[in-house]
């Protein structure tokens, strides 16, 4: 493949690649480093890319392999065999003015990266089970399990937030009622 054509295609995938990195890391700096490593590996190994095939899928594969390799290495170094510590390393999102979406982001951060990855591939990028299994290098049953557990965890978290919001509203209502001498309608 002509390198200038390859570069143009790489550039066209950069933002989606970074969004995919964010779905794995939930951390801006880590996502940037991950994308940088991915682009460098892709560029220096462009001879392995088969022209006419899906470059975005190829880049996704490099990115996720890099991410999980780094995570395994970090886990070995700190004795974090389950990845619990590395999973917990994240930054809070910037305030985006949409409380519900910010809460959803927070709930998403609490999921294991493997579940976030499958939720993104299937829920956002519309991959089939088979395609997701191929990208992740696992069986279809594992994809289904990660998807279901991820969605259930998010659903539970969202329902909990609904209850918390109702409780807050009730408390605020009580305060208004009390301040007005209990005459509020």
């Amino acid at each position: 493949m002509n390198r200038q054509d390859a570069k143009a295609e790489l550039v066209s995938h950069m933002k989606v690649l970074r969004a995919f990195a964010m779905s794995l890391t939930r951390n801006d700096a880590a996502a940037d480093d991950l994308v940088q490593d991915t682009i460098l590996k892709a560029w220096t190994n462009l001879d392995k890319f088969q022209e006419g095939t899906n470059m975005r899928a190829w880049l996704f594969t490099i990115l996720r392999n890099t991410f999980y390799s780094s995570r395994r290495k970090a886990a070995r170094e700190v004795g974090d065999s389950t990845g619990a510590i590395t999973d917990s390393i994240s930054v809070k999102p910037d305030h985006d003015g949409h409380l519900q979406l910010a809460e959803f982001r927070a709930a998403l951060e609490q999921l294991p990266a493997e579940q976030r990855e499958v939720l993104t591939l299937i829920g956002v990028l519309q991959y089939s089970y088979e395609e997701a299994a191929e990208v992740c290098g696992v069986k279809i049953g594992t994809i289904k399990s990660r998807l279901n557990r991820g969605r259930e965890a998010l659903a539970i978290k969202m329902q909990l937030n609904v209850h918390e919001t109702m409780e807050l509203t009730d408390a605020a209502t009580h305060a208004v009622v009390a301040a007005s001498g209990g005459t509020a309608a």
Binding site: M14, R18, A19, Q100, L101, M158
Partner: peptide
């Protein structure tokens, strides 16, 4: 290709997942 079965909350979750992904994908590159 097999596609996932839908649960009652799936569409809401997927909608939020797409919003999060789109926000990240629309952000300027550092």
């Amino acid at each position: 290709a097999q596609m996932p079965k839908s649960q009652p909350w799936d569409s809401l979750i997927d909608e939020n997942l797409k919003k999060v992904f789109e926000e990240d994908a629309n952000a300027d590159l550092p």
